[in-house]
Every structure is written in C-alpha cells, then in structure tokens.
C-alpha cells in the first residue's frame, strides 16, 4: 500500500508539472525545454526557507512560485527573440544555466551535497507527514492546478494562445500583443512547476541538483506529447502512464541480471511505437 501511495504522489507531482508545460507547449506552441529549471527553483526556494528560516510550507510555496515567475519573466524576455527550433535550443540553454547555479552556488544550495532534512508540510496541528496525508495534499493541489489551467484555456486568453500557436503573424495583424501573451503563459507555467517542485522537496525531504536537469525537462515533455498536446486530461493520462509504466515493467519477471536494462529498452520501444502510430498523443489535438 505504501508503494502505491508513493507512486500516486509521484503521479500527482508530474501531473502538475505536465499541466503547466502543456499550457506553454501544447496550447501556445512554444517548445520549451526548461521546465525542470522552474521545478528546481520551486523546490530549492521551499527547501531553503523551510530548513534555514523555519518557514511554513505554504508561504514558502507562494514565495517559490513568485521567484520562479520572476525568473521565468527574465528568461521569457530573452526567449521572445527566438522562434521554433532556436527557441527550444535557447530554452535548453537556460535549463543548463539554472542547473549550474544550483550545483555551484554552494553557500545557498550546498551544491552536490544537496539539502537534507526538509520537513513535511503542516497547517497548525494538521500535519502532512504521513504519506497518505501528503498524497491528499498533492491531489488537492493537482485539482486546483487542473481547474486553474482549465479556466485559462477556456477563456478568451486561452483562445488567443491557440491562435498564436496556429499563426503568430496572422493574430498580430488583429492587434494582439503576442509577446505579452507568450510571456504571461510562460510565467504561469513556471509558477505551476514551482508548485510541483515544492511538493517534491517536502515529499522526498532531500533535494540535490541532479533532479532538475534537462533529462527531467525532456521527461515532462514526453509526458505531454504522449498524453496529448493542448489537452489537459492528456497531461494527467500521460503522467499516469509514464510514472506507472516503468514500475509495471518490474512485474514482467525478467532475469535479475538484465531486468533493469531490459525495462529501459521496453520503455523506449513503447514510447517509439506510440509516437509512430499516434503522433498526436493519447488525447491530443495537434502534432508538434
């Protein structure tokens, strides 16, 4: 049971990450490969405020979101100079920069030693230190993030995001400031990633920079492409599949000496087949 709760918590964290990234990539068409950087900013802000300043989780979460949003605003301003493939490459560069800062600003982040002893969240006498209580908190935040994202994509704002994805030049002609729209959704996506980061830090109770690499950004990108771009339910399903699939492969009964490698190979093959036969993802509206 504990194992299932653990998987459910991971699922909730990745679903929150994916919902935020889908707003940026799926709805607006900005191929961002820097999501793990904002995930890291949220995680480190919460971890530092909890371990060094004795803050409560919830205000630390808000500060993490604000800081992540400010960094996203600065990164987004630079990224607005790029388009398509160059945008993806430049965003990848920012993930590397943030990772390097987390690794090398040792006074603040303790570098590769990481930050241990991060306490679990609590409100007054209500503690989320039990895993099932933490799952409840993660699911509540997931529901809030889902409905917030749904509110955004169903608004006029969401409609403009889709128009930007479809033809940025054409929507400009009708008097839309597309850069402001792109920046706004990039900042919102980063703030949602910070929510996932704060949850991750307080769930594992230890963080180090190795969690917030490009690999993680690509993993979240894989979730939203697999689940379906521009589809919020797709992000949830994608997170469910990609978090559970490697675990499910544990039960294949492979010989112990090759089990780990074979699981990775099968995992890769399944991803390739899915993209080959269903490039728009499980529930997606459009292909990259």
């Amino acid at each position: 049971m504990e194992y299932l709760i653990h998987l459910a918590i991971l699922f909730a964290i990745y679903a929150i990450l994916s919902l935020g990234l889908n707003l940026v990539v799926g709805y607006t068409g900005l191929l961002s490969v820097t999501h793990a950087a904002f995930y890291g900013v949220g995680a480190y802000t919460t971890a530092i405020l909890l371990t060094r300043s004795g803050w409560n989780f919830f205000p630390a979460l808000i500060i993490g979101m604000i800081l992540s949003g400010i960094i996203a605003l600065l990164i987004g301003l630079v990224l607005s100079k790029f388009k398509e493939d160059y945008y993806a490459l430049a965003s990848l560069g920012f993930n590397i920069i943030v990772y390097s800062i987390l690794l090398n600003w040792q006074k603040l982040t303790r570098g590769p030693l990481g930050i241990p002893g991060i306490s679990r969240p609590s409100i007054g006498s209500l503690s989320f230190s039990e895993n099932w209580m933490f799952l409840l908190l993660a699911l509540i935040l997931l529901v809030i993030v889902y409905y917030l994202s749904r509110f955004l994509v169903r608004s006029s704002f969401g409609r403009v995001l889709k128009a930007i994805r479809e033809d940025e030049g054409a929507i400009k002609i009708f008097g839309y400031n597309v850069n402001v729209y792109k920046l706004t959704i990039f900042v919102i996506g980063a703030m949602l990633a910070a929510v996932a980061g704060s949850l991750f830090a307080t769930y594992i109770t230890f963080i180090d920079p190795s969690t917030f690499t490009i690999d993680e950004s690509i993993f979240v990108l894989a979730i939203i492409i697999l689940g379906g771009l521009a589809n919020l339910k797709g992000s949830i399903i994608g997170a469910l599949i990609l978090v559970l699939l490697p675990e499910a492969l544990r039960f294949l009964g492979l010989p112990n000496d090759i089990a780990a490698q074979m699981r990775q190979v099968i995992y890769g093959v399944i991803l390739i087949l899915l993209m080959l036969f269903r490039p728009q993802g499980m529930m997606g509206e459009y292909k990259l």
Binding site: L152, R154, S155, S156, F157, R159, V160, A163, I171, F174, G175, Y176, N177, V180, Y181, T184
Partner: peptide, 16 residues
C-alpha cells in the same frame, strides 16, 4: 471569436 473578443491580456483572462 478570437478577433471579436478582448485584446488586453488581463481582461482576456477573465472573459470567455
């Protein structure tokens, strides 16, 4: 609809 509705980002957030 995308041409008919609000141009301002913040107004667009709260309008369908």
């Amino acid at each position: 609809l995308v041409v008919l509705t609000e141009r301002n980002v913040f107004s667009a957030l709260f309008e369908k």
